[in-house]
């Protein structure tokens, strides 16, 4: 039995957000390839922008999925997105320059299988399930790849596992000081998983509005990008990491102020140190 609790009323249609999210993430991931072309790491911040684009799309997908009573909390949707996405993303990094496209295809396949299993085998019979899980797997994979690019400057397996450790001014190659060897991927996993579920989880309720939720998604993306940029100081050059940091801070400041403005617009009232107002009948 499926009961739809809320309907999507107004706002940008989901298909439009999905197409925009895929294109923006892919373009940003490929723009980071300028690192290889120019031989620098200055374009790593495009990875962070890919994260923001993917998270905006993902938060709207979660809204579509969780509008049905799926029987679990909203955060579980974020977890499954990244649990399925990490497999596809890691496998795809072996494909060199084709990695972002391969990620898209592989994650879609993984999500499709998971959606089929939950709908047909576990008999959940939720209409949006297959499409949403497919989308979420791609969102998870793109976000992780974006974080990888932001922190290491590349999306190939070699870039993700190679690092260097400086001992007494001597630079030695080290597997342990890398995105995967140092398990920064675990931090990226949680950063993304909470950021993708938080916008809908925080904004749900009868007064839900789409623009406020999407603004919060962008805010979560830039906030995650900010801390990821700080971690990137360990793996890429200081100048390149500074560029990412500045982009993240500017983006976060703008979206956070916008979000507070939108909350002010939507709230019943905005009180400072006032008692509980009287409501009729109580």
């Amino acid at each position: 039995m499926t009961v739809k609790i809320e309907v999507i009323a107004g706002g940008i249609p989901h298909t439009k957000i999905m197409v925009g999210g895929i294109i923006a993430s892919l373009v940003c991931l490929y723009l980071s390839y300028l690192n290889v072309v120019t031989g620098t790491e200055m374009f790593s911040f495009f990875g962070g922008l890919a994260v923001v684009a993917a998270l905006i799309w993902g938060s709207n997908t979660i809204k579509v999925l969780c509008s049905y009573g799926i029987g679990t909390g909203v955060p579980s949707a974020g977890m499954i997105a990244f649990g399925s996405g990490v497999i596809a993303m890691l496998l795809a990094t072996k494909f060199g320059i084709a990695a972002p496209i391969v990620t898209l295809v592989l994650a879609a396949v993984v999500g499709l299988i998971l959606g089929y299993l939950s709908n047909e085998v576990l008999n959940m019979k939720i209409p949006a399930m297959v499409q949403s899980l497919t989308e979420l797997a791609v969102v998870g994979a793109f976000t992780l790849m974006g974080f990888a690019v932001l922190m290491t400057g590349g999306f190939t397996f070699a870039a993700l596992t190679a690092g260097s450790v400086t001992i007494m001014g001597l630079s030695l190659p080290s597997y342990q000081v890398s995105f995967i060897g140092g398990s920064l991927i675990a931090t990226a996993f949680m950063l993304g998983a909470l950021a993708v579920q938080h916008p809908f989880n925080a904004c749900l309720g009868p007064g839900w509005t789409q623009d406020r939720m999407l603004m919060l998604a962008a805010e979560c993306g830039f906030l995650s990008m900010f801390v990821a940029a700080i971690m990137s100081f360990a793996l890429i050059t200081t100048g390149s990491a500074l560029i990412s940091l500045v982009v993240a801070l500017v983006g976060w400041g703008y979206t956070y102020m916008q979000y507070i403005g939108l909350s002010k617009r939507d709230a019943a009232s905005w009180l400072d140190a006032k008692p509980i107002p009287d409501v009729e009948g109580h």
């Binding site: 919060l216 979000y259 909350s263």
Partner: peptide, 8 residues
Amino acid sequence: LGRTASLK
């Protein structure tokens, strides 16, 4: 802010 604004 999000939860409270949605309870307008």
